[in-house]
Amino acid sequence: MRQLIDFTGLELEGGIYPTDIDGLIEYHDQEYILIEVKYGKTKVPFGQRLAIERMVDDFTKIGKPAVAIVCEHTVKDADKHVVAAACKVREIYYGGEHRWRKTEKQMTVREFVDNFQSFLTEKEGLVECK
């Protein structure tokens, strides 16, 4: 992860470049959780935000519950690991809502993932695979 990927030569018409997503959970062909981690209050670039929204919307259209999380960390030292599970969720994009929103309460990524799975299990009757 310390080796940078150079996307030179992959620009498409209109100045479109590849984007990255820091994490993706595909849970037993039932749901998708996309995770984007930023340092502090760093903004998600417009193109990356749009790509994330479209992926979540596309998953939702085919009947798979999906959510995107933007979370933040405060680790300044680039030689230290950022533990994604402990990052604070800043905002979410839930499939079908077509808007970003702040979380109602402060929580970690781990807490959000657990809550999202519980919500889906209760609301939509998903069967948990083991």
Rank of each mutant, 00 (worst) to 15 (best):
P65D: 12
Y39E: 15
G47Q: 15
T74P: 03
E11N: 12
T108D: 01
A85E: 14
F7E: 09
V82S: 01
S118H: 12
E124Q: 15
I52L: 06
A51Q: 06
L126C: 08
M1I: 03
T60H: 02
T108F: 08
Q30H: 08
F46N: 12
G95P: 03
V75L: 08
T60R: 00
E13K: 15
A51H: 03
R101Y: 05
G40T: 10
K41A: 11
V37T: 11
E104H: 15
I62M: 14
E104N: 07
V113Q: 04
H28I: 10
E104M: 11
F59A: 11
A78R: 10
R110C: 06
T108Y: 04
F7C: 13
P65K: 06
V44H: 03
G63H: 04
Q48I: 08
R54S: 13
G23W: 01
K88G: 12
Y27K: 14
T19E: 14
I52S: 02
M1H: 11
E128R: 10
G23T: 01
K105T: 11
K38S: 02
K38W: 04
L34G: 00
R110K: 06
V44M: 13
K41S: 15
L24D: 07
H81T: 15
D22F: 01
Y93H: 06
E97C: 05
K102N: 11
V44G: 01
C87G: 09
K43E: 10
G15S: 01
M107S: 12
K76T: 11
T19L: 03
E97S: 07
V109Y: 01
V89A: 00
F59W: 05
L10V: 14
H73P: 04
I21D: 00
K102M: 12
G40H: 11
Y32T: 00
Y39P: 09
A51F: 04
D20C: 07
E91I: 04
T108I: 05
Y39I: 10
E36G: 01
A66H: 00
Y93S: 00
F46A: 09
A78K: 11
I52Y: 01
R2N: 08
A86C: 14
F119H: 14
C87M: 08
K130E: 12
A86S: 13
D114Y: 13
H98R: 08
K123T: 10
Q48Y: 05
G15C: 03
D79T: 06
F112K: 06
K102P: 07
T74L: 05
A86F: 09
Y94M: 14
P45E: 11
S118R: 15
A68E: 05
H28P: 11
M107P: 00
A68G: 06
V37N: 01
C129M: 07
R101D: 14
D79I: 05
G14P: 01
Y27P: 04
M1P: 04
G40R: 12
V44A: 02
K80S: 06
Y32D: 00
C87T: 09
T19S: 05
E26F: 10
A68S: 12
